[in-house]
């Protein structure tokens, strides 16, 4: 099995703040890999370096052997990317956005239309296809972003916090899309701070905390590392990021405040 993503000794700083500190991990082909971490842990920065949107201070990032720093265009051809922020062209309609993407990616008109039609029907998106993006709900914007990322049959899907603020139905659709993509041999790299999602979906996870990769492996492997047998991923995460005591104290204080 070859590596879909390979990140080696990656360092990225913003002034004095080291956002990503000597991080290394791989995502195998056909694997769903989750990067977990609290807000500000460096997940988005690592993904943006992998996408070639930011320059690393040191270290390397590759997608299917293509270097993110040397050939970012090549990387973007292979990847379907859903960023955390929903910054779509608000005054365009999804139809106009998909046409723009299909043109830029130089996709065949007939095949792409058929593929988009299938997505639109499957995601119950017909009503919003010709509505201006600014009038869409957050869930429908996320659907538009998802179709945009899948339009070219990417080998790797990178999803940055894909479940933030989604309603139950859209979140469920999103989970199905990820699973089907992996079942068809595609790879998925997703960042999230929702432990249940990662536990249910990811083959392996990497835990980032304050820019450092604290642990990486399957849930079983992480349980072993954290010495929390049978624990949920949430418990394992808190143990590995040394937040258990902090959370316990917080809950005690909350109990007093709410009493």
């Amino acid at each position: 099995m070859s590596e879909a993503v390979k990140i080696v000794n990656l360092v990225k700083s913003y002034g004095d703040l080291v956002a990503v500190n000597d991080v290394s991990f791989e995502v195998q082909e056909g694997e769903i890999f989750g990067i977990l971490g609290p807000n500000g842990a460096g997940k988005t920065t690592a993904i943006r370096v992998l996408m070639g949107l930011l320059d690393a201070d040191s270290g390397t990032a590759e997608v299917f052997g293509t270097s993110s720093s040397e050939d970012p265009i090549g990387v973007k051809r292979l990847v379907g990317y859903v960023p955390e922020e929903q910054q779509l062209y608000e005054s365009l309609t999804p139809r106009e956005i998909f046409e723009f993407i299909a043109s830029v990616r130089e996709l065949p008109e007939e095949k792409t239309s058929k593929r988009v039609a299938e997505f639109v029907h499957a995601l119950d998106f017909e009503k919003y296809y010709d509505a201006m993006v600014v009038t869409l709900s957050q869930g429908n914007k996320q659907k538009a972003l998802l179709i945009s990322a899948l339009i070219h049959r990417p080998k790797l899907l990178i999803l940055d916090e894909p479940f933030s603020g989604l309603d139950v139905r859209t979140a469920s659709i999103m989970k199905d899309v990820i699973k089907i993509h992996a079942e068809n041999g595609g790879s998925v790299l997703l960042s999230t701070h929702i432990m249940e999602v990662a536990e249910a979906m990811c083959d392996r996870v990497g835990i980032l905390d304050e820019g450092k990769l604290v642990a990486v492996g399957t849930l079983e492997e992480l349980r072993d590392v954290s010495k929390r047998e049978g624990a949920t991923l949430e418990r394992v995460f808190l143990a590995l990021t040394e937040q258990e005591d902090e959370v316990r104290e917080g809950i005690d204080q909350l109990r007093e405040a709410l009493a």
Binding site: R95, E99, S103, K127, A131
Partner: peptide, 21 residues
């Protein structure tokens, strides 16, 4: 508008698609 016209996409060259957008 809630009426779906048709889903067929019309593509252009890269440069023309950016200008058009």
């Amino acid at each position: 508008t809630l009426e779906l016209r048709d889903i067929t996409l019309k593509t252009k060259t890269v440069l023309r698609s950016i200008i058009n957008k």
